[in-house]
Structure formats: structure tokens, C-alpha cells
Design a binder for these strands. Structure first.
Lengths: 213, 213
DNA sequence: GGCGCATAAATTGGCGCCAATTTTGATACC
DNA sequence: GGTATCAAAATTGGCGCCAATTTATGCGCC
């Protein structure tokens, strides 16, 4: 009788109402809507087969997320990538993820480690047989589950949010294939460090991984 | 010709369009709309003398900020305070603010220190002659400017956001007048530590200040 | 007298229209 | 030929209405 989908991830995908906000966000993240693109309401309306109010609500939410910029009586456009902001977000990520390294090592169960290995392997597989977006999502999934071990749910949500805030073109964040493979290797090393209980090593790995990812 | 108010704080107050979202947020923070209160669109429409779409946009934004909860076909209500979440947010604050203590000490100029002393004094004055909300804002202002010294603008915004996320009733966060006076005293001590260049002391003061504030 | 049901009231939420502003294009003038 | 001005087209954004769902109320029934 009563609905029980409080969150947004009840099912993997909702074919009924895929939520326009999420669709536009995916297109921005995938690089299909490059920074600077003007988001005309008419175009979006047609592109996503939705109504005007839905488009407007989605745009307003994306403005709140700082992903698009709104200029009154002019329109909405995809926010230009800000080098300084990206650097600042990386710094924040380093501080937080390094700081909870000890909790991760302390709390990680055998099941947690096994799960991380699966996610790390999935990332490695997608290096060869996957799109950039799939790679991006696999990377996100690994880091989400890694952080979740620390036990601070709010922290997981927070970092997911701020990662979206800057990475307007996550596709271009890994420049070379060599760098991607390196990232995958670092994931494995991080899990190794957790298994061995080497907090210091995990901290250093995390720091370098985030700063040059 | 062209507008230059990119942000939202061009002037101290905008008598033209005070933005309903901000008004509702203030009322929630001030405790005038306690947790659990149902926010009927009709009531808000009349209370803030605005139109239906404005109310709806404001509610949607507050849902994004996690301050109100939305139940489809039922309505919006002020989010109940979650003890676990509040604890987690405090933990995050401790990690971040302690982590940038060294940068604050390193970068603080004489002007910065003078400014912090003014803000700390203002807080102390308001302990005697101010409302709880004024006190709350003065406290926020002190911590904002303190963090700003570290040079990471994104960090300042982030902490401002997550502080709003939980403190549905900031009025009740300081239980006794003695605790408030203690907070004011701690502000002064933190500025002293910065002036002396004592990073370790600032870190310890910050940690305690946040955890029991 | 208590419980269940049907009807009515209220509230939410989707949708479209029209005014205000801006941009673009053409025309006339220097 | 370039520039300023004016008009037309396009886009944004405010506003209200009406259907769908839920909640409250009163009536009949057990």
C-alpha cells in the first residue's frame, strides 16, 4: 500500500520516470554537453521528451549543485571548468580520505576487502572493454565502497557531491591509457595496504591517487 | 549595462526579492518551524506573500539541501533531527578544520587576526544583548572568516553547507549560558593560538570546540 | 457504542499560456 | 562601407487552472 522508495536508488533503473535532472547530469558528465553550452529549455524539452516545468526544475537543481550557471533573462549554461576550484576540491578530498584511512583499516572486514577486490577488478576489466563513462562509474563505485567502510555515511554522500561539483568532463580527467591502468593498479595496492593493516601506506597511496587522478 | 551580482550577497539585504528559500530556511534555523512541521503550500504562500511556483521551487531546493523531506502526494515536512547524522557532520568538521589549522597559522596576517578579534568580540557582546539567532550568525561569521584564511574557498562553502544540513534547531545547540560564554572564550583562545603560531594548540582547541559546541 | 465505508473537502502536482526581456537581423544613415 | 537604430523573432519566466490523490468527516451498519 504505502510506498517504500524513500531514496532514489530503489531499483537499478527506473524505466518509468528516469528523472530529467539525472539525465542531463549524465550528459554533462559524459561530455555530451561540454562546458559553456547554452541549455535552452526548448531543446531540452525535446531532447528528453519531457515538459517545460520538468526542465526548469532540473535546471534549478543543477544550479544548486553548481554544475550549471544561471543568468537571469539570459538562460542556463554548463558551468565552465574552474582550475582553482578543481584543485581545492582535490585538496578537500585528500584531507578527508587520508584522515579516515585509519578507520578504514581498523573496520575493514574480510567481506569488505573481497568486495573492494571485485570492484577494483571490474575497473581493470573496463579499461579494455568499456566506455569512459562506465570507467568513471566503476571508479566512483570503488571509492564509495572504500569510504563507506569508515562508517561515516554522511562523508560518503558529501564526497560524491563534491566530486560531481567540478568534474564537468570526467572523461578527460584521465589523460592517457597508461594513467588509467596506473589508477587501477593503485586501487589494488590500496586494498593490499588495507589487508596488511598498513595505515601509513594507505594514506600515502590515497594522497597520490587523488592528486594525480 | 551588464549585471555584476554573480553571487547572492551583493548587498547585505535585498528588499526587492528576499528569496523565499532563504526566508523559510531562516525560520527553520530559528526554530519557528520545528522539525516534523508539515509545510503546506497554501500556508507558505500566505505566510511569505509569494506565489505558488515560488513556494514549490523553495521547497524543492530545501529538499536538495536535505533540510525538508518530501513524500509524494503527501507533502513536505521539516526533516527530523537525526542524532547519528549530527555526529557524523561534527566528525567531518573536526577532520577538515583541524587539518587546515597549519595553513591558517601560516597564512594569517595581522589584519586577519584583527578581524577575527572583532568577530569574536561581537559574539561575546551578543551573549548579553542578542537573540539566539544573532548569536548563531555571529558564530557562523567567526568560523567562516577563520576558515577563509586557509585559502580554500570551496572548503568555506562546503562547511557552511553541511552546518545547515543538520542544525535544524541551532537555538538549542548551546544548552546553557555558561556553555555559550565558554564558546566565546574558546574563540579568543583560538585567535591567541594563531597569533603565537601554536598550531598544535589551535588543533586541540578546534577539536574540542566543535565536538562540544 | 464502535467500526467500516462512502462521500466531500483539501492538498498536491502537472500543464500550458502569455507578458517581459533579450538577441538577432535588416534597414537607413553617416 | 561601416555603424547606429529600429523592428521582429526567439527565449525566458511568472502565473493560474484543473485533474489526481489523499485525508477528514459523517452516515449507516454490525
Amino acid at each position: 500500500m504505502n510506498s517504500l522508495e524513500a531514496g532514489a536508488a530503489a531499483q537499478a533503473q527506473e524505466p518509468q520516470t528516469p528523472d530529467v535532472t539525472e539525465l542531463i547530469l549524465q550528459d554533462i558528465l559524459a561530455g555530451r554537453l561540454p562546458p559553456g553550452t547554452w541549455l535552452k529549455q526548448i531543446d531540452l524539452e525535446r531532447r528528453y521528451s519531457c515538459t517545460r516545468p520538468e526542465v526548469r526544475r532540473a535546471l534549478d537543481r543543477l544550479v544548486q549543485k553548481r554544475l550549471v550557471e544561471h543568468i537571469p533573462n539570459r538562460g542556463y549554461h554548463v558551468h565552465e571548468q574552474d582550475g582553482r576550484r578543481a584543485q581545492e576540491v582535490s585538496d578537500i578530498r585528500v584531507i578527508l580520505e587520508v584522515a579516515v584511512s585509519d578507520r578504514i583499516v581498523a573496520k575493514a572486514s574480510a567481506a569488505d576487502i573481497a568486495n573492494l577486490r571485485v570492484l577494483a577488478s571490474r575497473f581493470d576489466d573496463l579499461v579494455l572493454n568499456g566506455t569512459m563513462l562506465e570507467l568513471y562509474e566503476a571508479n566512483l563505485a570503488f571509492h564509495r565502497d572504500l569510504l563507506a567502510i569508515a562508517g561515516n555515511q554522511e562523508l560518503v554522500e558529501l564526497i560524491t557531491e563534491i566530486r560531481q561539483r567540478t568534474s564537468s568532463a570526467p572523461v578527460s580527467q584521465w589523460r592517457t591509457r597508461a594513467r588509467i591502468e596506473q589508477s587501477g593498479h593503485e586501487h589494488q595496492q590500496m586494498v593490499d595496504a588495507i589487508e596488511k593493516g598498513d595505515v601509513g601506506h594507505l594514506m600515502e597511496l590515497t594522497r597520490r591517487h587523488i592528486l594525480q587522478a
